[in-house]
């Protein structure tokens, strides 16, 4: 029942028990049922409780998004599923490490633009920079776009992490 016109992008946070295979379960759910993953990040967030938080950015029709949430919620090691795109206004951040090579004008221009994006230089040689840039995904997209003609050679992105605004916990 996919209606191409009403595709939405959602950021979903999943709190899971950090047991063996839990990530494979989540990823297997998406591949097995043909859902999209735009990005997925995961790390332990509570050592004492052994819980990890997975942040998934996915696209689909409202019916598919609802399915994804219901399917995630019924996995046995899942504590909680929150749709950060629906339930709250959330802040989303991503970090990228971006390597640019070149010299002369282009090198100067890359450095100047990085300043405008509040990117930090974390490694440098005579003919290369590694920038660290943080922000919403579209800001990172924009920065990468600007670096492309200036000698972009390598990109590593974390994928989105997100959290709800306001005092409430997940």
């Amino acid at each position: 029942m996919s209606n191409e016109s009403n595709i939405e992008r959602h950021t979903i946070a999943v709190l899971v028990d950090n047991e063996a295979g839990v990530l494979a379960r989540v990823i297997g759910l998406f591949s097995g049922r043909g859902y999209n993953i735009e990005s997925l990040t995961v790390a332990e967030v509570d050592q004492a409780e052994h819980t990890s938080r997975i942040t998934i950015v996915t696209v689909g029709t409202p019916m598919v998004i609802e399915q994804i949430k219901a399917q995630l919620a019924r996995l046995v090691p899942v504590h909680k599923v929150v749709d950060l795109t629906v339930d709250t206004k959330a802040v989303e951040r991503e970090m990228a490490l971006i390597k640019v090579t070149g010299s002369g004008e282009k090198r100067v221009e890359a450095l100047r633009l990085s300043d405008a994006f509040r990117a930090r230089v974390i490694d440098t040689t005579h003919n290369s920079f590694v920038f660290e840039v943080t922000g919403a995904p579209d800001k990172i997209d924009a920065f990468i776009g600007l670096m492309r003609p200036l000698g972009l050679v390598d990109v590593s992105r974390t994928g989105v992490v997100a959290i709800a605004r306001g005092p409430e916990a997940m």
Partner: peptide, 11 residues
């Protein structure tokens, strides 16, 4: 009993 069965195929 399975929330994921509801609205999976038919609204």
């Amino acid at each position: 009993i399975d929330a994921s069965s509801i609205n999976k195929i038919i609204h």
